[in-house]
């Protein structure tokens, strides 16, 4: 139950530090939305180059829980699907590989938005 805990902590923490530096050291118009978009795109590109895979092997959840891991899954899914079904896989692979995450985000997001009201 407690295996991989330290690697996840260190890799996850360091990935978040990159995000913090992006926000604090760039111009103020770089919002959390920009951080999330940069991480998902960056993760997809690093995944395509094969550079994110080692990070997942070392860090486990430390690399998959940050949004860059979501980008990595998208790219990995697209490449694997291209291998199996050709060019059509480029369109279907990414979304198929991340379908659980996307559906969970939409469904739980809706549920919680309806159930709760903002505290302000």
């Amino acid at each position: 139950m407690f295996e991989m805990i330290m690697p996840a902590f260190i890799v996850g923490g360091l990935i978040c530090v990159i995000g913090q530096l992006l926000m604090d050291l760039t111009k103020p118009a770089f919002t959390p939305a920009h951080v999330l978009v940069s991480f998902v795109t960056g993760g997809a590109i690093l995944g395509a180059l094969g550079w994110y895979e080692p990070l997942v092997k070392i860090g486990g959840a430390g690399a998959t829980i940050p949004l860059s891991g979501f980008g990595y899954s998208l790219a990995k899914g697209a490449m694997e699907a291209v291998g199996k079904q050709g060019i059509l896989g480029a369109l279907s692979g990414g979304v198929e590989a991340t379908a659980v995450g996307i559906a969970a985000a939409v469904f739980f997001g809706y549920l919680m938005s309806v159930a709760f009201s903002p505290k302000g």
């Binding site: 926000m23 103020p28 919002t31 959390p32 903002p118 505290k119 302000g120």
Partner: peptide, 11 residues
């Protein structure tokens, strides 16, 4: 600015 429950840091 942002929705009040958005977890952001204020400058």
């Amino acid at each position: 600015r942002a929705p009040t429950e958005h977890g952001t840091q204020r400058a």
